[in-house]
Structure formats: C-alpha cells, structure tokens
Amino acid sequence: MIWDTWKKGFDAWESATAKLMEEMLKSPAVLWPSGAMLTGAMKAKTAYDRAVSQWVGAAGVATKRDQERMLHAIHQLESKLLDLEEKLSQKNA
C-alpha cells in the first residue's frame, strides 16, 4: 500500500521532470552553447592529434592515420576480390 502510493507519486514526478528536462534540452539557450562547446572540444582534439602525428611523421614513422588508410585499402581490395568472385561465378553459371 505504502509502496503503491509512493510509486504513483514517483511516476508523476518522473513524468513531469522528464517533460521539463526535454523542454530545457530542446531550448536553444542550452542547445547552442552545448553544441559550440562540443564542436570546440572536438576541434581542439583534432588539432592536438594532428600536431602529434606531424611530429611522428617527421620522424619517418607511419602515423595512426597512415595505418588506418592502409588497412582500409586492404579491406577495399578484399571487397573488390569478392566482387570479382561474384562476377566470375555468374559468368561460369
């Protein structure tokens, strides 16, 4: 009984709070500065990563991005091989 009453109160509070927070999170007054902060932080991270990779690259070592490009190229080659395999099996059919 006590639990049920408490739960009804909780549900009402939760629903009202969620609605309020949704309005707040939709508001440009919150959304725009948050977006700007996130974008700024991302740009700072990118600049830092770029500086580090330039330094590593200058030492003649493959950077993380180089390795990613290489691996991606290998995956693309694999895909092209699968394309060829499909075409070949169609031609043989």
Binding site: L25, P28, L31, W32, P33, G35, M42, K43, K45
Partner: peptide, 20 residues
C-alpha cells in the same frame, strides 16, 4: 528532441568525425 539536436547550428558533425 533528436531532430532539435541534429539541427542545432552550432553542432558540427565533421569535427566529431575528424576528432574520433
């Protein structure tokens, strides 16, 4: 709400992708 976030002019998709 999702639309409001993605339409926010200050949220840049490319910076997120470039960073991560």
């Amino acid at each position: 709400l999702l639309e409001a976030w993605t339409q926010s002019p200050t949220f840049g998709v490319r910076p997120v992708v470039e960073a991560f």
